[in-house]
């Protein structure tokens, strides 16, 4: 099951952090908001400020799992003409300047339309490390899992892409096992029943549920959705392996770009 672990860029990051007793800071950017050149600069800024992995949103017209902040960012990126193909090409260019792990976060129709096989090949070749597809549960991802190297022929030693699936607060023990088994790189725990950018409550229930996930898997678990400030990140970082910050950062970059670097540094220090 975990044949590729230990040798992808993402799993190396977690191994290194775990050995050092540290947690991963995983910021999210919408690719092409407001344009790809700016996204490139921001990736480098994030890396300089200590981001361990960067999630790159690929804009889709109907982002079902996203709140108003990321919806608006996707609309801006689509208006700027950004497509999956362009973000793959952009990643290829970025690889000349940075080796920070890049994970695409997008919706299934874009990948389905592009062709799953072609996507995995092109993305891997361009230097994309993993993919998060909120509307693709593992039950519908057999083909993608096979293509990316999660299952299939034994001799296929090299994983092409890490596949990161979401576990939710509503997930039963059985679902946790199913989803965790399909994950490679890390497991994405959604902090709340809701959409991105909703209000986060860090409570006993969240910790209990995280404990259930720990029982089911030894893969790293990163928590996201609703992490708005350094205190949230600090609290989550105390019991998760990584903290994902999306809407709050997208909003900061859009509304107050001059303050973004300070915000990023606060988050980094908190985790």
């Amino acid at each position: 099951m975990s044949e590729g672990r230990g040798n992808t860029r993402i799993s190396s990051v977690f191994a290194r952090l775990r050995a050092a007793g540290k947690k991963a800071f995983i910021p999210y950017l919408m690719a092409g908001d407001p344009d790809l050149a700016t996204t490139g600069e921001r990736i480098l800024l994030l890396e300089r400020c200590g981001a361990d992995i960067i999630e790159l949103g690929v804009p889709f017209s109907d982002p079902l799992a996203d709140g108003p902040t990321i919806q608006a960012a996707a609309e801006r990126a689509l208006t700027a003409g950004v497509t999956l193909q362009k973000v793959i090409a952009f990643t290829r260019e970025m690889r000349r300047q940075t080796q920070v792990p890049l994970v695409f976060m997008t919706y299934y129709n874009l990948i389905f339309r592009y062709g799953e096989e072609r996507f995995v090949r092109d993305a891997a070749e361009a230097g994309v490390d993993g993919v998060i597809i909120p509307d693709l549960p593992p039950d519908e991802a057999k083909n993608l899992l096979r293509l990316s190297g999660q299952s299939g022929k034994k001799e296929k030693k090299e994983r092409l892409l890490d596949t990161i699936f979401l576990i939710a607060p509503t997930s039963t023990k059985e679902r946790i096992r199913t989803v965790a088994a399909a994950c490679s790189g890390f497991v994405y725990y959604v902090s709340m029943t809701g959409i991105t950018g909703s209000r986060l409550t860090i409570d006993r229930a969240l910790q209990d549920h995280l404990a259930l996930i720990r029982q089911a898997t030894d893969k790293p678990v990163a928590v996201g959705f609703g992490v708005a400030k350094a205190e949230d990140a600090r609290a989550l970082g105390s019991f998760a392996d990584g903290v994902i910050v999306g809407s709050a950062l997208v909003k900061k970059f859009h509304e107050e770009p001059a303050g973004a670097e300070r915000f990023i540094k606060e988050l980094r220090e908190a985790i």
Binding site: L64, A65, Y108, P134, D135, L136, P137, D139, E140, F165, L166, I167, A168, P169, T170, S171, T172, R175, V179, V190, T193, G194
Partner: peptide
Amino acid sequence: TKGYFGRYGGRFVPETLIPAL
């Protein structure tokens, strides 16, 4: 059993909704 009519259908939703479905 997976909700398919031939090649159409299925269950493409965020994990949060899977238990409800």
